[in-house]
Nucleic acid binder design. Structure first.
Lengths: 232, 232
DNA sequence: TTTAATTGTGTAAATTTAACACAATTATTT
DNA sequence: AAATAATTGTGTTAAATTTACACAATTAAA
């Protein structure tokens, strides 16, 4: 097997923006680096693509190491490739974002990576071009969530419509009309009434829904217009 | 400057799907390979990311070498990273699509690369995973063009609404209602009436429009819903 | 039992979309 | 010169959707 003789091999990293939702605010799972380079500073979770490892496998490995979860929803955003973006050595970064249920991930995995949930709005400064990556990820999340039902990935198995609304309000940092939102969501037919009601409520208890996984799969690529253009 | 000692450096290629429109059909600019590997077979235009070259610069270099054009509209799609996707040596491919005005590019540049315009519908089989790349690129083009005014990138400076409609019909391989299409396009206020009319017509001459570049820039990220969901 | 907060559902006006018809223009044919 | 055929520009109406609201029901706490 002949190799390509005249070309340069380059380090390839994967960096992931992990979003979570605590019921009130959008959160990021960030690393307080206890290793070099840039020890002590904050960064995204990342890792290098290994010798005999498919790119997809590497992505799942990195997400698993951080969260202890498999089959996480993620989406590739962009490859960052400025020559000097990493001062140690030239490194490409294939950047993606992931959405997880903040209560489902393994705390020990996060602890092992020295990872902490941080409010998106009050996030610390990050190393290298990681700030730009987060900005872009938020943009992409907003774009995608306006049209496709990816928001559910951030919620627990069962959730109420008011919870879902709070999530969308957090994503777009804008208030939404309760009545119109509810109608829009229900009209997608993606929700199944579980018959149960939210217990931890101090006033009227809201209906608990779960996602209709089959319809979610089959209608995922349809447009839903959850959020109007003016809102984004 | 310390290097990262234990990690693997990998070959990184860029492969681009170049779309064009001849007034009737969507076209692809493909390479009839007169070099190894896979000499004689068809492939996408590509190239390796070089040592001291920004990723963005490499993309523009490859597009320039193929078309003689600068400032081409392009969009990154995905990085293909299966270990064995290139049998010669492990190679990542950062894949993107580009839209050009088929009449504006430099024929000599294309000839130098042994590149030919091919009907998207009757395209030859391509090497490696390039077929998948084209499939994905078409999907992304359809997705993006349903919401954002990228179609104009495929047309000459001046164009008529019937021409534009033919383009959209080619992209979605579906007929569109002439009257509703015209209304939808005009309501974006992205078109400027040049006052001139299409000359090479055997019947009623259509109005020639040009793009309002300022509005195009500023409203690019707004949603336009050029194509309804059921159409895609 | 009242109160306050929240949830579920309804309604009417405005806007947008979908489906369709007709008049105007131009090269070609009669 | 008039008729023809193909194509273009614009208009209309009904249906569907969105927007901006109001009201009744539920629940824990006062």
């Amino acid at each position: 097997m002949n190799k390509y003789p005249h070309s340069t091999r380059i380090l390839v990293a994967l960096d992931c923006i992990v979003f979570g939702f605590d019921g009130e605010e959008l959160k990021l799972l960030l690393i307080k680096r206890n290793f070099e380079p840039e020890q002590g500073k904050w960064s995204l979770m990342g890792g290098f693509l290994e010798e005999e490892e498919d790119l997809e496998v590497a992505t799942n490995r990195i997400l698993y190491d951080l969260t202890g979860l498999k089959d996480i929803y993620f989406e590739e955003i962009k490859t960052f490739g400025k020559v000097n973006r990493d001062p140690v050595e030239r490194t490409l970064s294939i950047c993606f974002f992931a959405l997880i249920n903040i209560h489902a991930h393994n705390q020990d995995s996060a602890k092992a990576q020295n990872a902490y949930w941080v409010d998106l709005k009050n996030r610390p400064n990050l190393i290298f071009d990681h700030n730009q990556m987060v900005d872009l990820a938020l943009e992409e999340l907003r774009y995608k969530a306006a049209l496709h039902p990816i928001g559910f990935e951030l919620l627990p198995e069962q959730f109420t419509i008011p919870q879902l609304q709070k999530l969308y309000e957090a994503i777009y940092d804008s208030p939404l009309d309760r009545r119109n939102f509810s109608r829009k969501i229900l009209s997608t037919n993606l929700l199944i009434d579980t018959g149960e009601k939210n217990q931890n409520s101090t006033t009227k208890k809201a209906i608990l829904y779960k996602l209709d996984k089959e319809k979610y799969q089959s209608k995922f690529n349809a447009f839903h217009y959850f959020i109007s253009d003016s809102m984004r």
